[in-house]
């Protein structure tokens, strides 16, 4: 670990973005569950200043704002899983949390950290993409607090790389309240039931009416440098009846559109097979329970 020159702990969002602009070289610390192990392993070098963002009230909280649910960047995985708004409207996030790390990590790890860490295997990213989420980014512009939003798929550039600007902070994640009839599934496929990194993950969501699936969104994790949309799979499903033929075609489309790598966790071939089999399993589950 490298020695730090400076430590700051701003107590408002405005103060934080001001300091970001002023200090330039800053490492942001939220729950630290990615940052600390990465730093210890020498994979991340601390910049000159360490900024603890945990005292910024604006980054906390989960609330409904119009047609959106805004989840503050500092919301922990545990908080998200327990929150009534999430449980009512975004059960997909609850099920993602269910397979996320361990209780200890869920209590410390934040949604903002998971998003900014931009791991292709980050377990909230695929569900957030299926839910059509966008990120709210805060910075200082002309001496004023400035916020912009960006659709999630656009935000991710590569493993650990995002479009977050140097003096920018992720303030929140915004999720449109899903429409009537929206059903969604997330499947994390690891090789053991607890404390595992996804070998692949799949999220599927859409509106199911009279057996017909529409507004379909599909996303895959751990099959590319970033979580990716499953456009071909979406196409295979959009406006179709969820019958055996559709499901089989969608599973094949899913397998054919991903290009995973081989690593210590799984081979590319196995990942493709699992994308196929798990897509099929998810869709069968949707078609039989709704």
């Amino acid at each position: 670990m490298t020695a730090l020159d400076n430590y700051v702990a701003p107590t408002s969002l405005e103060e934080a973005v001001e300091q970001l602009l002023e200090l330039g070289e800053v490492t942001i610390l939220a729950g630290g569950t990615d940052l600390m192990p990465q730093a210890n392993a020498g994979r991340v070098k601390f910049k000159r200043t360490l900024m603890n963002i945990r005292r910024i009230p604006e980054l906390r909280g989960i609330a409904r704002e119009g047609d959106e649910i805004r989840i503050g960047a500092l919301a922990t995985i545990s908080e998200i899983m327990a929150h009534p708004l999430v449980r009512e409207h975004l059960p997909l996030l609850v099920s993602a949390g269910d397979h996320f790390a361990s209780n200890q990590i869920r209590n410390a790890g934040t949604l903002g950290g998971n998003v900014c860490n931009a791991s292709p295997a980050g377990d909230t990213l695929v569900p957030l993409m299926v839910l059509g989420a966008s990120v709210e980014l805060a910075s200082m512009l002309d001496d004023k607090l400035y916020r912009r939003t960006m659709q999630l798929p656009e935000f991710f550039v590569g493993p650990g790389k995002t479009r977050l600007a140097t003096a920018e902070l992720l303030a929140a994640v915004r999720i449109p309240v899903p429409p009537q009839g929206f059903v969604a599934r997330f499947h994390k496929f690891g090789t053991r039931p607890a404390l595992d990194i996804s070998a692949i993950s799949i999220g599927v969501g859409g509106v199911l009416k009279n057996g017909v699936f529409s507004d379909v969104r599909v996303a895959f994790g751990a099959v590319a440098p970033t979580p990716v949309c499953g456009c071909a799979t979406e196409e295979a499903l959009e406006g179709k009846k969820l019958d055996a033929a559709t499901i089989a075609a969608a599973a094949v489309a899913a397998r054919d559109e991903v290009h995973p790598i081989s690593d210590v966790r799984a081979s590319d071939w196995y990942r493709k097979e699992m994308i196929h089999n798990m897509t099929k399993r998810i869709l069968e589950d949707v078609s039989t329970t709704h």
């Binding site: 090789t191 053991r192 039931p193 607890a194 404390l195 595992d196 990194i197 210590v264 966790r265």
Partner: peptide, 15 residues
């Protein structure tokens, strides 16, 4: 290639 508990998989309690 896996000198750590992340990818050296010990059995966890639920297993």
């Amino acid at each position: 290639r896996n000198p750590g508990f992340r990818d050296y998989k010990l059995i966890t309690a639920p297993e």
